[in-house]
Design a protein around this nucleic acid. Structure first.
Length: 417
RNA sequence: GCGGCUUUAGCUCAGUAGGUAGAGCAUCAGAUUGUGGCUCUGAGGGUCACGGGUUCAAAUCCCGUAAGUCGCCCCA
């Protein structure tokens, strides 16, 4: 048997209603906030991500699906959306107009990682990006949007972790202070953290190794290094969230794994998930446009892991019910009635009823069972007398009542659901 | 990329000290032939993940591979 590639999953009809629900909710909420959907190709030139996401990140170093195409160009399956989206916006030139533009997406992404629950090699994200506003109002709008979305799904128990990385000036000062501190404790750090000390020292704060956690406890805190501009920005974000009644937890050690973030960063966590407890996150990125060759443009955005949301909904028992396959099942008692039955089915479909017929030439009993199994509320029965008199018998399966009517009356017959 | 656990019918799982496999659910068919859901009866369905090895004999022991899962790592 040929199996699906490791870390990939088929979405079968029995779970498709969950996907429709998430896609619909994502679209409706995004549009309520004035965001428009943007789609990009699922692969890009590799430099989009190596320059965009950052050479020091694990995503770029270890997790990308990169290959040479037949023309010798290095191509990468997108591991996330923001870099692609920024590339597309720069290319389209729309951001030049210096007015805010707002985009959302719901799409598959690819990372070569060891699969686990909630961690796949092809996975889906719903996200949104607000481009061209440097102001905290846009940070808050993004968080507000995610909040609305999570609420619309019926998820109430989750944590919003919030932090500020400040502007590049304060970040540099902090970075130096942190390196200084970590160097003093170098002997006690894990090997991973010692390596990161050189490449991306902020990530050491995120370490889960016990040794590191003990050391990091006393590390300098970025919030103490914010300059006035950065501090004002963060304070404004907090007070706006407060007035909106959106709860959050200040988490000075939250740094996130993509290089392009500055100022506000945030992450959503749920205890329903286990080791992969984060189901969404985002932040501000003011330098990404220039890194990708565009005009310097401030922006902020978020992404949520769709498969992880589904796991949460599952644990809360809030998955949408599967839709019935059919409203009406046409039972035909004789092969000679096939054409008649097919015509009846067409009339019913024209009324907007989901209509199924027997495709296995089975007995009446089996067809009735099938009607029941596919969730139909009505069975339409065609036997000798119906066929001869141009009639059908309509049986209400839940009430076990039935009546026989002429086919000309089908269009106005009142099927109740 | 590293470590632990798991892998038997479509699904969930039994399988005792090595002797070529069982249950429940699901599927299908019947219960006097134009009526389903309940009940009863019966049937089909498994190269026991894959590949080696030990043995007269392996689902059962050993090795390897793959996939899943839980951690590490990373992130959504």
């Amino acid at each position: 048997m040929i199996q699906a590639v490791r870390g990939t999953k088929d979405i079968l009809p029995d779970t498709i209603d969950t996907w429709y629900f998430l896609e619909e909710t994502a679209r409706i909420i995004s549009e309520l906030y004035g965001y428009r959907e943007l789609r990009t190709p699922s692969f890009e030139k590799t430099e989009v991500f190596s320059r965009g996401v950052g050479e020091g990140t694990d995503i770029v170093n270890k997790e990308m699906y990169t290959f040479l195409d037949k023309g010798g160009e290095s191509i990468t399956l997108r591991p996330e959306m923001t870099a692609s989206l920024v590339r597309a916006v720069i290319q389209s030139g729309t951001y030049q107009q210096n007015s805010v533009s707002k985009y959302w997406y719901f799409a598959p992404f690819y990372r070569y990682e060891r699969p686990q629950k909630g961690r796949l090699r092809q996975f889906h994200q719903f996200g949104a990006e607000c481009i061209s506003s440097p102001y905290p109002e846009s940070d808050v709008e993004i968080i507000q949007l995610t909040h609305s979305f999570i609420q619309a799904l019926g998820i109430e128990e989750y944590k919003l972790m919030l932090n500020s990385l400040g502007n590049s000036a304060s970040r540099d000062v902090y970075r130096n202070a942190l390196i200084e501190f970590l160097k003093d404790n170098k002997e006690n750090l894990t090997e991973d953290s010692r390596n990161r000390l050189e490449i991306n020292p902020l990530r050491v704060l995120d370490s889960k190794a016990e040794n590191d956690i003990v050391i990091v406890k006393n590390a300098p805190i970025i919030l103490d290094y914010l300059d006035n501009e950065s501090k004002d920005h963060f304070e404004k974000v907090k007070s706006l969230l407060d007035s909106l009644g959106i709860g959050y937890e200040i988490t000075p050690k939250l740094v996130r794994g993509l290089d392009y973030y500055c100022h506000t960063v945030f992450e959503f966590q749920s205890s329903a998930l286990g080791a992969q407890d984060s189901f969404g996150g985002g932040g501000r990125y003011n330098t990404l446009f220039s890194q990708l060759g565009g005009k310097e443009t401030p922006a902020v955005g978020f992404a949520m892991g769709v498969e992880r949301l589904i796991l949460i909904l599952e644990s809360l028992n809030k998955l949408p019910k599967t839709e019935a396959e059919a409203d009406v099942f046409v039972v035909s008692l004789n092969l000679d009635f096939q054409a008649y039955a097919a015509n009846i089915a067409q009339i019913l479909r024209a009324k907007g009823l989901k209509t199924a017929t027997d495709l296995q030439r089975r007995s009446m009993k089996a067809q009735m069972r099938e009607a029941n199994k596919c969730g139909a509320k009505y069975a339409v029965i065609i036997g000798d007398s119906e066929f001869e008199n141009k009639q059908i018998t309509i049986k209400n399966l839940s009430e076990s009542s039935q009546e026989t009517i002429g086919i000309e009356l089908i269009p106005e017959y009142d099927f109740k659901f």
